[in-house]
Design a protein around this nucleic acid. Structure first.
Lengths: 218, 218
DNA sequence: ACCTGAACACCGTTCAAGT
DNA sequence: ACCTGAACACCGTTCAAGT
């Protein structure tokens, strides 16, 4: 609707694949995950409802491609937190957490698509591999985890983080931030933070507690 | 299919509501969340596909009722962990975490229904209130949180847990365990634990790390 | 009151057919 | 190669009608 129906002559542009993904992102943010149908995406992109099957095996493949976008953005955010705080591992971790949670709250449907479990990671991975020429592996969903792992390892090398296997510590941090992100984006809290500032302050607070731990030391 | 089509004369039993919920649970564990349609539930319960509307506003209302079952079970598990470890707050917390994660892994679709975000908590709450005569509030989705909060407060009173606002500490713990549960039940880990024992051991390990915190102390 | 069957507007997916 | 339109088997939901 908001888009110009520009008849550019190139009705079969090799770009239809990307057009479909963009249309999907638009519908996702407008109508939510429930309102995202393959037929609607096709109509938004200006093609027949069977045209998407030229570029995607099925609906899940298209959704996977959309989710990949989210993974790429998450990876970028984590890497930015890394670069910005090379001398302060704790601030690095907190920045990363805030970035993650902020993304989840601002694009709840995309994040739900990424982590809601309706997509099998195998399918996403498959979609990644089928289309990893241009952007070599920048969209690999597990890359976000690798970026977090790098933050953890860096903190340990600096002597700031506890000396346990990095993968275990990364999983604790991943779980904590991911859980908070899911609870907030799913509006599952009784007294949810209202503004973006409140979300950030809460995330900061919870991250600090994660740093010091639950046990009381006298 | 597995059920006897017993024509008991009571074709309109006031019990249809519960029959529908049971049928829903069965289909959920058999066909997953995608395969759960209102029409299929009705057929499984042996009524026409419009009969459910006598008892539920819409599909989401039925799903909410099914999710309530999960919240009730989660609450029971948390309360059991509480009763069992009155003198050991740390063991109490770890038991609670293991129970949560184990539930999530053994009934991934139910948990996805509870926390996947496709249900608005408002609807679930609505469904709770409409039907809270028999089981007064034992199904309130926020009761699980209250049970966790009780564990946290108890640990603080025993002097075992750090002295910060209980709600903040509860949110950290909730987030961590919830996040781990979601990552595992969604099969989003690169090297997931295979057996139930491995799941439990991993959860135990992560919970211990949560207790001591991320920061290194010399 | 409780349930049914037809009907409506939508789905995802397949397939023969067009250029 | 790339796209279309008809067709199929499913949806959720509404509504007049039956007991």
């Amino acid at each position: 609707m908001a888009k110009k129906k520009s008849k550019k002559g190139t009705y079969h542009h090799g770009d239809l694949r990307n057009h479909l993904i963009q249309a999907g992102l638009e519908i996702l943010s407008r109508d939510g995950i429930q309102g995202l149908s393959l037929r609607k995406v096709a109509k938004e992109a200006g093609v027949s409802h069977t045209a998407p099957y030229r570029h995607f095996d099925d609906k899940e493949a298209l959704l996977s491609a959309i989710a990949m976008d989210g993974f790429a953005e998450l990876t970028r955010l984590l890497d930015a937190a890394y670069e910005k705080n090379l001398d302060e591992p704790e601030a690095m971790l907190i920045d990363a957490g805030v970035a993650y949670v902020t993304l989840a709250v601002s694009k709840p449907d995309t994040v739900r698509l990424m982590f809601g479990g309706s997509l099998s990671m195998a399918k996403v991975q498959e979609e990644v591999e089928r289309f990893s020429q241009e952007q070599p592996e920048s969209q690999n969903p597990y890359l976000a985890y690798e970026s977090l792992l790098r933050i953890v390892v860096h903190g340990q090398e600096k002597g700031a983080f506890i000396e346990v296997p990095s993968r275990e510590l990364a999983l604790l941090i991943w779980s904590s931030v991911h859980g908070l992100a899911m609870l907030l984006s799913g509006e599952q809290l009784k007294e949810p933070p209202e503004t973006r500032e409140e979300v950030e302050a809460l995330t900061r607070r919870i991250s600090e507690l994660l740093l010091v731990g639950v046990i009381h030391r006298k």
